[in-house]
Computed example of a mutant assay.
Amino acid sequence: MRTVLAGAASLLVTLGIVTAGHAGSRVEQILERYENANRWRDHVMVVAHRGGGLEAGKTRYPENSMASIRGVISSGAEMVEIDIRRSKDGELIVMHDSWLDRTTNCKGEVIARTMDELSQCRLVVEGTGTVTDEPVPTLREMLAATKGKILVNLDNKLETADLADMVVLARAMGMEEQVVVKANLWSAERVTSVKQTMSQVGSGFQFMPIIADDAVRDAGFIAAAGRAFSARAVEMITWRGEAEEMTASGGPLFSAKVKAAAIRDNWHIWVDTHAIVNKPGGFLSGGRGDELAVTAGFPNEVFGFWAERGATMIQTDEPSAAIEWLSANGYRVPYADTDESVAAAMGEEQVSAPTN
Rank of each mutant, 00 (worst) to 15 (best):
A6Y: 07
A9I: 06
R33D: 00
H43Y: 12
A48L: 05
K58I: 07
S68I: 03
I73F: 08
I73E: 04
S74A: 15
S75E: 14
A77K: 10
E81P: 08
I84Q: 01
I84T: 02
R86C: 05
I93N: 03
D101C: 08
L118A: 09
R122M: 10
L123F: 10
D133Q: 12
P137M: 06
L143I: 05
T146S: 07
K147H: 03
G148P: 08
L154D: 02
D155K: 06
L158T: 04
L158I: 08
E159W: 14
V168G: 02
M173G: 02
G174T: 03
Q178H: 05
R190F: 06
K195H: 10
K195N: 12
V201R: 05
S203D: 12
P209C: 04
D218G: 08
G220P: 01
G220C: 06
F229N: 07
S230C: 08
V234Y: 01
I237A: 04
T238P: 04
W239Y: 14
A243N: 13
E245S: 09
A248E: 05
G251L: 08
K257S: 12
A261C: 01
A262F: 11
R264F: 11
D265W: 15
N266W: 01
H274F: 14
I276T: 09
G281L: 13
R288S: 01
T295L: 09
A296P: 00
F298Q: 14
G304E: 02
W306Y: 09
A307D: 04
I314E: 10
S320Q: 15
S327H: 12
N329L: 07
R332V: 06
Y335K: 09
S341A: 15
A344L: 12
A344V: 06
Q350D: 07
